[in-house]
């Protein structure tokens, strides 16, 4: 659009800049997001505020439009790429300043399943929502899930399957967790095109997530419950 002038982000006040960042995330403009993150940091915003108020809130709009069928995978991938640019700047600062963690997730496709586009999308959207994501990749036997839970101590375990033949393996993983007495230490979310709520209940998962946007919403809900329980306990 040549009739519009290139906007200098530094001339915007904080509110305008944050709103602009929401727009730029929506449009997947990585360089603009990086520039804006640096501007907010220069204006003495805490890294945590930049993350939650600018980036996470912007990605939430992307998530809603993805859920509602307005945005599709290509746009979400671009937005997630822009978010990642901002996170790259923020991550060391968040650790340095001891900012509260929004949550941690271990995710992977189950044994026998090599289809990972859905799993990758969930990982990106979860990162976009400020979660720390440990991606185990494809074709994970129960031992790999257990080892990752032990090593990373996540809040959430996410399992994905595209094939009807691999879906039942989720039950194997959950049953093993029950056996080991660690099932209730984690929120278990499952996803994959052929799954549904009944399936999730039948295998003993906490919830089925229809798509990446729903996964983020569900993860947030469970994290809020967990915090409330901790506060109450």
């Amino acid at each position: 659009m040549s009739d519009e002038e290139e906007l200098d982000l530094s001339t915007l006040n904080d509110d305008e800049l944050v709103e602009q960042m929401h727009d730029d995330l929506y449009d997947g403009l990585k360089e603009e997001i990086e520039e804006a993150v640096n501007l907010l940091l220069e204006r003495k915003w805490t890294p945590y505020d930049v993350l939650t108020k600018a980036l996470v809130k912007g990605m939430a709009i992307v998530g809603v439009d993805f859920r509602d069928g307005i945005l599709f995978v290509p746009e979400v991938l671009l937005a997630a790429g822009a978010m990642k640019g901002g996170m790259f700047i923020l991550r060391p600062l968040l650790i340095e300043t001891g900012a509260p963690r929004l949550g941690k997730m271990v995710i992977g496709t189950v044994k026998g399943d090599i289809h990972d586009i859905g799993k990758n999308l969930v990982g990106m959207m979860m990162e976009g929502a400020g979660f720390e994501v440990i991606d185990l990749g494809i074709n994970n036997p129960v031992e790999d899930y257990l080892a990752a839970l032990e090593e990373h101590k996540p809040d959430i375990l996410g399992m994905s399957a595209l094939l009807t033949t691999t879906m039942p393996y989720m039950k194997v993983v959950i049953d093993t967790m029950i056996e080991k007495g660690i099932r209730d230490d984690y929120t278990v979310l499952v996803g994959g095109a052929p799954l549904n709520e009944e399936f999730a209940a039948a295998v003993g998962a906490d919830a089925y997530c229809r798509d990446a946007a729903v996964a983020v919403e569900t993860a947030r809900e469970f994290m809020a419950r967990k915090h409330n329980q901790l506060a109450a306990g």
Partner: peptide
């Protein structure tokens, strides 16, 4: 006939391309 977007309407700029 898609549902309405969650994004706010007052967009100021698209990157010049």
């Amino acid at each position: 006939a898609a549902p309405k977007s969650a994004r706010s309407g007052n967009r100021r700029r698209r990157k010049a391309s």
